[in-house]
């Protein structure tokens, strides 16, 4: 069985990482350490660190959205960043992604945002899409605001919708960037529970990799591992 997510000697460059949209790479920065981290199946791993630690870009590096100065990130044994562009896009559909700041499309309603990956990236029939959307909306308790646009929803509702979109294709691996910022601990716990997709003897049904500057205390006991990324450190320091 391939490991869902593995960071191998990933240089956490402090210089600007460049989006693959422009196709440019960042220069290596030796003042930062190299990260080695493996996320096993059914595990929820949270990587935390301050703004200068480079932790905020780990999700984008994993998905090949950004190119770091060194090392490799393997997702199910594949380094997405090295794939041809079309193959990258196809591969990313296997992974759920909640970007920092939610990334919801402002001209779509919350319901349409959740449906977008299914409508664009799957062969689901319209009835199946509607049914699955209803389930997700109910799970995340945002049915009453499903018809509003992101600008009309509050931060928690937007985050719930963004999580619903990340889970729309029921991925085995989900990458969440700063999912708990601005939420109450209770709301954060609820989102974590939905993201894990249920409990199995070996852990959550889904594998989660979460990044952020901090993790609320109440959630620390609900995840398998928390690692701290520190500037200048070689590797990571487990809390």
């Amino acid at each position: 069985m391939t490991v869902p997510l593995e960071f191998r000697e990933v240089a956490l460059g402090g210089g600007r990482r460049r989006s693959t949209w422009g196709g440019r790479r960042a220069a290596a920065d030796d003042s930062y350490g190299a990260l080695n981290l493996t996320v096993e199946r059914h595990e929820t791993v949270v990587a935390i660190g301050d703004e200068s630690s480079g932790v905020d870009g780990l999700g984008a590096l994993a998905l090949g959205l950004e190119r770091g100065p060194g090392g490799a990130v393997c997702v199910f044994g594949t380094v997405i960043a090295t794939l041809e562009r079309r193959a990258q896009l196809a591969f990313r559909r296997q992974v759920g992604y909640l970007p920092a700041g939610d990334g919801l499309l402002q001209n779509l309603t919350l319901r349409e945002n959740i449906q977008l990956p299914m409508r664009f990236g799957s062969d689901f029939q319209s009835g199946d899409i509607e049914g699955r959307t209803r389930v997700i909306l109910a799970q995340l308790r945002i049915d009453p605001v499903a018809g509003v646009r992101p600008a009309q929803a509050n931060e928690e509702e937007r985050r719930r919708a963004a999580l619903g979109r990340a889970l729309a294709l029921d991925p085995e691996l989900v990458i969440l960037e700063e999912p708990f910022v601005g939420l109450t601990e209770r709301a954060g716990a609820e989102l974590l529970e939905v993201a894990r997709g249920g409990e199995l003897p070996e852990g959550g049904r889904r594998t989660l990799f979460i990044t952020g500057q901090d993790l609320p205390m109440i959630l620390r006991s609900r995840v398998e591992r928390t690692v701290r990324i520190a500037r200048g450190a070689r590797g990571v320091v487990a809390l």
Binding site: S19, L89, A90, R92, P99, P117, F120, G121
Partner: peptide, 11 residues
């Protein structure tokens, strides 16, 4: 960040 989110979803 909507363009990045689209790419992240494989769109």
């Amino acid at each position: 960040g909507e363009v990045r989110a689209l790419e992240g979803m494989g769109i």
